[in-house]
């Protein structure tokens, strides 16, 4: 496919268009990356639309819940029992869409 004729938006700028009301007290998703270490698939890394799963040099996964769309992709593609603990944020917190 041909190259775009206009500058592409960076991932940071893309995510900066989204409002997140971050709950500073509780992470609604937690990742136990001792389980991720021997996972060869790691589908979460490519599938998470917010790119929140980052592989570390030590073979683990670095996860940050703050810019989460609460979509469910990560736990649906995860095939390691117990690696991802997934709940919704507390009421009123998390992603807030305005023009979608």
């Amino acid at each position: 496919m041909s190259a775009s004729s206009y500058p592409e938006i960076s991932f940071e700028a893309r995510m900066a268009t989204v409002e997140f009301r971050i709950d500073e007290d509780r992470a609604h998703i937690t990742v136990d990356d001792t389980i991720c270490r021997d996972c060869s698939t790691r589908g979460c890394i490519t599938a998470c639309p917010a790119n929140l799963f980052v592989p570390t040099a030590a073979g683990g996964i670095l996860f940050n819940y703050e810019q989460c769309f609460e979509c469910g992709t990560c736990y649906l593609v995860c095939n390691r029992e117990g690696a991802i603990t997934w709940t919704y944020p507390e009421g009123g917190h998390g992603v807030v869409f305005h023009r979608s």
Binding site: A47, N51, T73
Partner: peptide, 21 residues
């Protein structure tokens, strides 16, 4: 989801290609 998880392309990269078509 399973094909996306299998990689290598991330959603925003696939979207970039559509926008450039």
């Amino acid at each position: 989801l399973p094909a996306l998880a299998a990689g290598p392309d991330r959603p925003e990269e696939l979207l970039r290609r559509l926008k450039a078509h």
